[in-house]
Simulated assay, not measured.
Amino acid sequence: MDETEFWEIVDSTREAAEGDPEEHADLLVERLLGLDPDSVLDFARHFEARYNRAYTWELWGAAWVLLDGASDDAFDYFRCWLIGQGREVFEGALHDPDGLAELLDEFDEEIDGDGEELGYAADEAYEQLTGAVAPDLGIAAQSAEPAGTAVDFEDESVLATRYPNLWTRFRP
């Protein structure tokens, strides 16, 4: 599976889910079940590589603004959700996290930002197809610390300065 096919699967299942993150995960599993196990593992590798790339302080700060706080787990789920938003939003957010203010049509912190189930979709599909747990993907684990310069999440003035567009659009 190449990168284009990976993003096509993400996009088509997101569009069919019409904004429902749980439905998106269910549709993704269903779509992956139509593939052979090796292709499911390829999908998982693409997903994991992007998940690790998104482990940055800058992106965590953007998640903090959007979610009004983001614990370690919340940021993990946010990165899965971000991948689920498709290539344009994902790559745009990596390039300029504050640019999410223009890339997102809407954002409801009660619904959006939590893609936990998307993170498990390939594992679930692989297990259903083979009856076995997915093997190690051979991808280096993410580093202990996010990439980039740390952000002081507790200082709202720092967040408002670093993420002016997100702050203006999504914070009261």
Rank of each mutant, 00 (worst) to 15 (best):
M1G: 09
T4N: 04
I9G: 08
I9E: 08
S12Q: 15
T13W: 01
E15W: 03
A17T: 08
E18L: 07
D20H: 11
E23G: 04
E23W: 02
E23Q: 10
A25C: 03
L27I: 00
L28H: 01
R31T: 01
R31G: 00
R31L: 00
L32Y: 13
G34E: 13
G34W: 07
G34V: 02
L35A: 09
P37E: 15
D42L: 06
D42F: 10
D42Q: 14
A44N: 07
R45V: 06
H46E: 15
F47Q: 01
E48Q: 03
A49M: 12
R53V: 02
E58L: 02
L59E: 15
L59M: 13
L59W: 14
A62I: 10
A63H: 04
A63Y: 04
W64I: 00
V65I: 09
D68R: 02
G69E: 15
A70P: 07
A70K: 08
S71C: 11
D76G: 09
Y77V: 00
F78D: 07
R79W: 15
C80V: 06
I83A: 06
G84T: 00
G86F: 02
G86H: 03
R87W: 12
R87Q: 15
V89Q: 15
E91M: 01
A93H: 03
L94N: 13
D96T: 02
P97G: 03
P97M: 06
D98Y: 12
D98Q: 13
G99L: 02
L100E: 05
L100A: 05
E102C: 02
E106Y: 11
D108I: 05
E109N: 07
E109W: 03
E110F: 08
I111Q: 01
I111V: 03
D114F: 09
E116N: 07
L118I: 03
G119Y: 03
A122Y: 07
A122T: 05
D123R: 04
E124H: 10
A125W: 14
A125P: 11
Y126F: 11
E127I: 01
E127N: 07
L129P: 12
L129S: 14
A132C: 11
V133L: 06
V133F: 01
I139F: 05
A144D: 15
P146M: 10
T149K: 11
D152M: 02
D152T: 05
F153L: 08
D155V: 10
S157Q: 15
L159V: 08
A160Y: 14
A160M: 13
T161V: 01
Y163E: 06
Y163I: 03
N165R: 15
N165D: 14
F170P: 04
R171Y: 01
